[in-house]
């Protein structure tokens, strides 16, 4: 199997300078022409490549590095109707010091909560450097008017959110009203101010890899700082081939425009093994530069404990048990 199976041929010249972006997004027709002109995803090739990369054996020192890196790129998430300020404070404490018995464990990248709990999370994380991310825009369905979505976003930003995770209007995307989706994202981006914007594509509802590629480009053209796979409320969520298609999109987008965009798989990544497979995929698809909390995140909650158990297994030489880690 060729090494590049399933990958889009890399665009060599920056073929999409900023003034051309404005052209592309100016009308529904030009946007559709552009998105449908993207090369199709070779589904079999993409899945085979992801499966091949997931057989990479990462051991000893490389595994230690991968586990610490994986911990430091986690968006520790709680998005439940039953969330309380107490639970968010507990989560923030865990985010800053994931393993109380081992100070060498790095802090996670961010905590991710609903907008009404941003203030609590902000107070609990303080100056620790752990960012506070908030979902907004009528998460998880996104079924609300633009005014409501903007108010939701403004609310979270005013409460101090460093990052906003918005959902796209999948209904509009699937019927081909790309311009409406784009305008949504542009408006939310504006409401974010200095907060970084992650755009959730909800790949479980997009049906094909071609759609995932188009939605990724659409979000990036609209100014997303990050593209994120899923809300975590719909299955399937973050699978390796989907993440790969999105990584190819950010890679090609940078080649075309010079702007770097991050990727965040979320939902369904529960074991250290899964996380390490994603890191391999990042390294092999987008490149080493993306192996950084600024450009790659994993949205998860149970994953952290498994990483900590693996880490403890490597430092103590015995298998760890879940009884000795916090329940979250």
């Amino acid at each position: 199997m060729p090494h590049y199976a399933g990958a889009v041929p890399l665009l060599t010249e920056p073929t999409l300078p900023l003034d051309r972006v404005t052209d592309v997004v100016s009308t529904d027709a030009s946007l559709r022409r552009f998105l449908h002109g993207l090369p199709g995803v070779d589904q079999v090739g993409a899945e085979a490549r992801a499966a091949m990369l997931s057989t990479r054996s990462i051991k000893t020192a490389a595994k230690q590095f991968a586990i610490d890196l994986a911990i430091s790129i986690i968006d520790l998430t709680t998005l439940e109707g039953q969330d309380t300020p107490g639970k968010v404070r507990t989560l923030c404490a865990k985010a800053q010091r994931p393993d109380p018995s081992d100070a060498s464990v790095p802090a996670v990248a961010a905590v991710c909560v609903y907008p009404d709990l941003v203030a609590v999370a902000k107070a609990a994380t303080g100056p620790s450097g752990v960012k506070v991310a908030s979902v907004a825009t009528a998460f998880p369905s996104g079924r609300a008017s633009r005014a409501v979505k903007l108010a939701d976003t403004a609310d979270a930003v005013a409460a101090g959110a460093d990052e906003i995770d918005m959902v796209i209007d999948r209904g509009a995307f699937l019927v081909g009203r790309y311009r409406a989706v784009l305008e949504d994202i542009v408006a939310v981006k504006q409401a974010c101010g200095t907060a970084r914007l992650k755009v959730i594509l909800e790949v479980g509802e997009l049906a094909t890899y071609d759609n995932v590629r188009r939605a990724s480009w659409l979000a990036m053209l609209a100014g997303a700082d990050f593209i994120k796979t899923s809300t975590g409320k719909v299955q399937p969520a973050a699978t390796l081939p989907v993440t790969q298609v999105m990584l190819e999109a950010v890679r090609d987008f940078r080649a075309a425009t010079g702007r770097m965009v991050g990727v965040k798989p979320a939902g369904g990544i529960r074991t250290a093994k899964d996380a390490i497979r994603h890191l391999v995929l990042v390294n092999e698809t987008a490149g080493e530069e993306w192996l950084d909390p600024r450009w790659f995140r994993i949205g998860a909650s149970t994953l952290l404990n498994d990483l900590l158990m693996q880490r403890q297994r490597m430092t103590t030489g015995r298998y760890a048990g879940p009884d000795y880690f916090t329940v979250d």
Binding site: G317, R318, Y319, A320, G321, P322, D323, Y324
Partner: peptide, 9 residues
């Protein structure tokens, strides 16, 4: 030894 040291046993 692995069984004896396993924290989940």
């Amino acid at each position: 030894p692995w069984l004896a040291a396993h924290m989940d046993v």
